Amino acid sequence: MYYPILRGKLNELLALRELAPLELKNFTPVIEPVKTDIKALVKTIEALNSNTIEPYIIINPTIGDFSNLPKNLYEELKKFDYLRYQILYSINENTETYKDFLEINDFGLFIQKGIDQEIINFSKKSKINFIQNDTSPNVKKLISNKVTYEDFFRKQKKNADYPKESPFSSLHSYYEEESNIGFGDYTITGDDFSEGGGPAYVVTIHCSYIDFKRFDELFIRHYSSKDDGTPTNPGAKFKQALNQLIADTETQAIPYSDTVGLEEFKALHLSEHFPGLGQVKKLSIKHHIQTISIYLADQES
């Protein structure tokens, strides 16, 4: 099972809503909400539920509006008792007690720090345990019902710093060998959280693909516009980056999976429309998630 980890920013939630009707196999999102206004979050859970998907919600977020209000999100979501979702309780550097959510009968753990014996003991009360992929193998053996996750995206300070391609992960190809029930990543957004992007001196499109000639590893192609030294005209810069992506799809130089996100990039190229940088990121997220879902479905067939 693939558990993409997303923050509750609007375009990330929109990506999940638009993926929901595709009936993707092996796909359950993890959402860490960042806004006290949860209307968009509720709408996203509704869309997922209507397509038989119950997302995992980190109920005590470590970032965003709820980071200093550890129980507020839980109280807000209880007002929508018709929603179906699974609760994840974050164990992080600020966690002082592991008993805050024991009144919830079914919960999972999202462990964001080193694992000691106390956490191992507490994990036995949890029905699912998200642990960092670089956790010691000896510790991993002591955790049951585990999902390994990591931030594999090699984020750069500036878009101009991205190479043409960077490696991402092979975890999707071997996670079951380590007795995991699933795996997760932060897609093409990375773990770093910010309220909004800076000025677009360079526009970059991130596009994921799995290379079967390189041991099924997932790579990210970075298509960047020229740096003109100014943050003006992001639409023209998007066109420059998009032209490079479309050229690779037309020559089939890169073995991209046929995804909805990629088709939408092609449609934008035909219409010469710039939808905004947030929408561009949304399409990259959709393409990344569907690429991995297609791979997992193919492995089962």
Rank of each mutant, 00 (worst) to 15 (best):
180 N>L: 05
77 L>E: 00
230 T>S: 14
272 E>S: 11
137 P>C: 05
126 S>A: 12
301 S>W: 01
231 P>E: 06
167 P>N: 10
54 E>G: 08
82 Y>A: 10
233 N>A: 14
52 T>V: 14
204 T>D: 04
236 A>H: 10
54 E>F: 12
298 D>E: 13
61 P>Q: 09
219 F>V: 03
103 E>G: 05
195 E>D: 12
161 D>S: 07
248 D>P: 06
63 I>S: 03
273 H>L: 09
53 I>C: 10
193 F>R: 01
153 F>R: 00
61 P>N: 07
206 H>T: 08
299 Q>D: 07
234 P>M: 07
254 I>G: 03
81 D>T: 06
107 F>T: 01
125 K>C: 04
80 F>D: 08
255 P>M: 08
287 H>I: 14
210 I>H: 05
4 P>G: 03
179 S>G: 06
98 Y>M: 06
128 I>Q: 03
291 T>I: 07
133 N>M: 06
73 L>H: 03
84 R>I: 01
78 K>T: 11
41 L>M: 11
173 S>M: 04
91 I>Q: 00
121 N>Q: 06
265 F>R: 00
5 I>A: 04
82 Y>H: 11
179 S>H: 10
11 N>P: 05
19 L>C: 06
85 Y>R: 04
196 G>Y: 13
55 P>Q: 04
217 E>Q: 11
183 F>Y: 12
172 H>Q: 07
31 I>S: 05
61 P>F: 03
110 F>I: 00
207 C>S: 15
26 N>Q: 12
158 K>R: 13
141 K>T: 02
239 K>L: 15
73 L>Q: 10
120 I>A: 02
19 L>M: 05
245 L>N: 00
276 G>L: 05
22 L>M: 13
282 K>R: 13
209 Y>G: 00
260 V>E: 09
114 G>D: 01
219 F>S: 02
99 K>E: 14
107 F>W: 09
166 S>P: 06
35 K>V: 06
11 N>R: 13
232 T>D: 08
87 I>Q: 04
212 F>H: 14
43 K>D: 10
112 Q>P: 00
232 T>A: 11
291 T>H: 02
284 S>P: 06
42 V>F: 04
250 E>Y: 02
33 P>Q: 10
293 S>R: 00
229 G>R: 14
5 I>G: 04
239 K>R: 15
126 S>G: 14
27 F>M: 10
199 P>D: 11
218 L>K: 12
275 P>Y: 13
178 E>M: 13
276 G>F: 12
68 N>I: 15
212 F>M: 12
94 N>W: 03
78 K>A: 14
28 T>H: 03
64 G>F: 03
26 N>H: 12
146 K>G: 00
151 D>L: 07
99 K>G: 04
141 K>V: 02
51 N>Y: 08
123 S>G: 01
189 T>F: 02
140 K>Y: 12
195 E>F: 08
253 A>I: 11
54 E>P: 03
158 K>W: 11
181 I>T: 04
240 Q>M: 14
117 Q>N: 10
235 G>V: 09
85 Y>T: 00
32 E>Y: 06
105 N>V: 10
243 N>L: 10
35 K>C: 09
79 K>P: 09
109 L>H: 01
109 L>G: 01
157 K>M: 05
190 G>A: 09
69 L>S: 07
256 Y>T: 03
213 K>E: 13
74 Y>N: 13
83 L>I: 05
11 N>E: 12
73 L>E: 02
270 L>A: 09
237 K>H: 10
256 Y>V: 01
214 R>D: 11
272 E>K: 12
197 G>T: 13
294 I>H: 01
